[in-house]
């Protein structure tokens, strides 16, 4: 049973780290601000859920009840605030006049890309 849990936790952790690397690469490589926030914003929440999930399994396995509780607290808090922060950044940039990049010279009224 423990071995199975370990494997599941390891898999979640590996998946989370892979996603984190992908998002970081996207943030670094993509050409304009809205593309970058697209890469960084959504994955932020997913990475958080995966890593905290892995740690929760570990906490349950070790019997750390208070640690598990705090992990759930962190996860819920990030689940609420991380998309909010991303949305606020995107809308602030849009308000200032930053527009998503598009190949045609007159950029259409693009949809606000928040998360």
């Amino acid at each position: 049973m423990n071995a199975v849990l370990d494997v599941v936790a390891g898999l979640l952790l590996a998946l989370g780290c892979f996603t984190a690397l992908t998002s970081a690469l996207g943030l670094y490589r993509l050409p304009d601000f809205f593309a970058r926030i697209h890469a960084a914003g959504k994955t932020d929440t997913l990475v958080q859920l995966l890593v905290v999930g892995a740690l929760l399994i570990e906490a349950a396995r070790l019997g750390h009840l208070s640690a598990a509780l705090k992990l759930v607290l962190i996860s819920i808090f990030l689940l609420v605030t991380s998309p909010t922060a991303t949305h606020a950044i995107a809308s602030a940039a849009y308000q200032e006049g930053l527009r998503p990049w598009s190949p045609d010279p007159a950029p259409s009224e693009a949809e606000e890309s928040g998360a």
Binding site: G16, A20, S23, A24, L27, F33, R36, I37, A40, G41, D44, V47, Q48, V51, V52, I74, L78, S82, A85, T86, I89
Partner: peptide, 12 residues
């Protein structure tokens, strides 16, 4: 944006 993302990574 980078600072915010760094913060989340730091939490994890």
């Amino acid at each position: 944006l980078a600072m915010n993302g760094l913060g989340t990574k730091t939490v994890l």
